[in-house]
Amino acid sequence: MSFLESPVRPASSPLGLDTRSRPMQALAILAGTALLALASYISVPMIPVPVTMQTFAVTLIGALFGWRLGAATVIAWLMEAAAGLPVLSGGAGGLAPFAGPTAGYLFAFPLCAALTGWLVEKGWNGRKVLRAFLAMLAGNAACLVLGALWLAALIGPAKAIALGITPFIVGGILKSALGAATLKALARRKAA
């Protein structure tokens, strides 16, 4: 079996939320939106896009909750933001962030959670830490690319790469490593 192949197994998230009751899944969504809100407050202001722990939380939620519930959780958090709750970076909420420079990243988040969750369900999880790292990195990279596409429409492609991708590469790698370490720790705990 090659590095990229994963053994055939039923899809399941590390927390097994896909087999839990609807009320338990609803509680997981609430906990996930709270984690995302907290991650939004861990922020380093930059222009036009701040550095936050949001992508770490988005990919971790996708990895832990599975692709469907992970994406649903991120969508619920975005709906909280659109309703005006102060759950985005710097306590922002309302519709303005969905039209500004960060909009592409916000709209990319559910896709990034789904991508990471899907990869983890396919075996790119904490049992194989390099695969887990690559799953988290794929989610972070997708966020940067999709977010920068929107930013390019606002400020041009060269500036979007310079301001919307380049400053976030090292952080994305570090967040991916932290996410993979988290998945590895959970896999060890589950095995014990």
Rank of each mutant, 00 (worst) to 15 (best):
T33N: 09
T33L: 12
A34C: 15
L35R: 13
L35G: 01
L35Y: 13
L35C: 12
L36C: 12
A37S: 15
A39C: 14
S40V: 10
Y41P: 00
Y41G: 14
Y41V: 06
S43M: 15
S43K: 15
M46I: 12
I47E: 11
P48R: 09
P48G: 01
P48L: 03
V49Q: 10
P50C: 02
V51C: 08
M53S: 12
Q54H: 02
Q54E: 14
T55L: 01
T55K: 02
T55N: 03
A57Y: 05
A57G: 06
V58M: 05
L60W: 07
L60H: 03
I61Q: 13
I61R: 08
I61N: 08
G62D: 13
A63F: 00
A63Y: 00
L64C: 01
F65R: 04
F65E: 11
G66Q: 00
G70S: 05
G70E: 09
A71C: 05
T73R: 04
T73M: 11
T73W: 12
W77M: 11
W77V: 00
W77E: 00
L78H: 01
A81K: 10
A81T: 07
A81E: 08
A83F: 04
G84H: 11
L85S: 02
V87A: 10
V87P: 14
L88T: 12
L88E: 04
S89W: 13
S89P: 07
G90L: 07
G90K: 04
A92N: 15
G93C: 03
F98A: 02
F98P: 07
F98Y: 10
F98H: 04
G100W: 05
G100Y: 03
G100R: 05
P101K: 15
P101G: 01
T102L: 05
A103F: 10
G104Y: 02
Y105D: 13
A108F: 09
A108C: 01
A108N: 09
A108L: 03
P110M: 14
A113L: 00
A113K: 03
A114C: 03
L115H: 01
T116Y: 06
T116P: 08
T116L: 01
G117W: 07
W118M: 00
L119T: 02
V120R: 06
E121Q: 00
G123Y: 06
G123M: 05
W124M: 03
W124Q: 04
N125Q: 04
G126M: 01
G126V: 01
R127Q: 14
K128Y: 15
V129Q: 09
A132T: 02
A132V: 08
L134W: 10
A135I: 00
A135Q: 08
A135Y: 11
M136K: 02
M136F: 09
M136E: 12
M136R: 08
M136G: 11
L137Y: 07
A138I: 09
A138M: 04
G139H: 06
G139W: 00
A141Q: 13
A141I: 14
A141S: 15
